[in-house]
């Protein structure tokens, strides 16, 4: 308690916020994360592939709702991240890959928003129309494809991020805690 009081009184602002339990203090200043040198993306690709193939195996009905839109390329642009993600949910061979921002791949749809908004959307905690009305998410491109994907995900039972974590078997517990921590960190943090 004494240490916490001393931190509050004398430490620089980020440490003071951390002492008060605000994990957002761990973040670099707003916008800096995006401007950092591009991270190596190669190590990200296998886990991303594992996530999408695992979800495809568990939820075959998702593809029925997507119909012809399963072949579309969905660019997921999480505002805080220094890279973008490209999803192509083809039933036979779904792909999910990360790309550097300076090499944005060809896509049919772009969905952009904060980590918090997109996370809440994935877990069906938030209504996508409400996020669109409030401009917390932006959609551009093939509207039919994005509407179909939204409805297909919305019909899944349980949070999709749980499926993401479960894709990693014995490491699921660690990933759950990591996702929860990321969510706390990014919550209401200006990008």
């Amino acid at each position: 308690m004494i240490i916490r009081d001393m931190l509050r009184a004398y430490a620089p602002p980020p440490m003071r916020r951390l002492a008060e339990g605000d994990m957002r203090a761990l973040l670099p200043p707003p916008g800096l994360l995006r401007r950092l040198p591009p991270p190596p993306l190669l190590p990200l690709q296998p886990p991303l592939h594992r996530i999408v193939t695992d979800i495809a195996r568990k939820h075959p009905r998702l593809f029925a709702r997507l119909g012809d839109n399963a072949g579309r390329r969905f660019l997921v642009d999480v505002e805080e991240l220094p890279f973008v993600l490209l999803l192509q949910p083809r039933p036979a061979a779904p792909t999910f890959r990360a790309y550097h921002r300076h090499r944005v791949p060809a896509h049919d749809v772009r969905i952009a928003g904060t980590f918090e908004a997109l996370f809440r959307l994935l877990d069906s905690e938030a209504d996508s129309d409400a996020l669109f009305f409030s401009r917390d998410i932006v959609v551009e491109g093939d509207t039919e494809a994005i509407v179909a994907l939204r409805n297909a995900i919305d019909d899944l039972e349980g949070p999709l991020t749980e499926d993401v974590a479960a894709a990693f078997g014995p490491l699921a517990g660690i990933l759950r805690r990591l996702l929860a921590a990321l969510r706390v960190i990014f919550e209401e943090t200006p990008s």
């Binding site: 401009r135 932006v138 959609v139 551009e140 491109g141 093939d142 509207t143 039919e144 509407v147 179909a148």
Partner: peptide
């Protein structure tokens, strides 16, 4: 409003 005929586009000024 059929979805295949709807489009949104954000311009450089931030207008939708």
């Amino acid at each position: 409003s059929p979805a295949d005929q709807v489009s949104y586009e954000k311009d450089e000024a931030g207008n939708l």
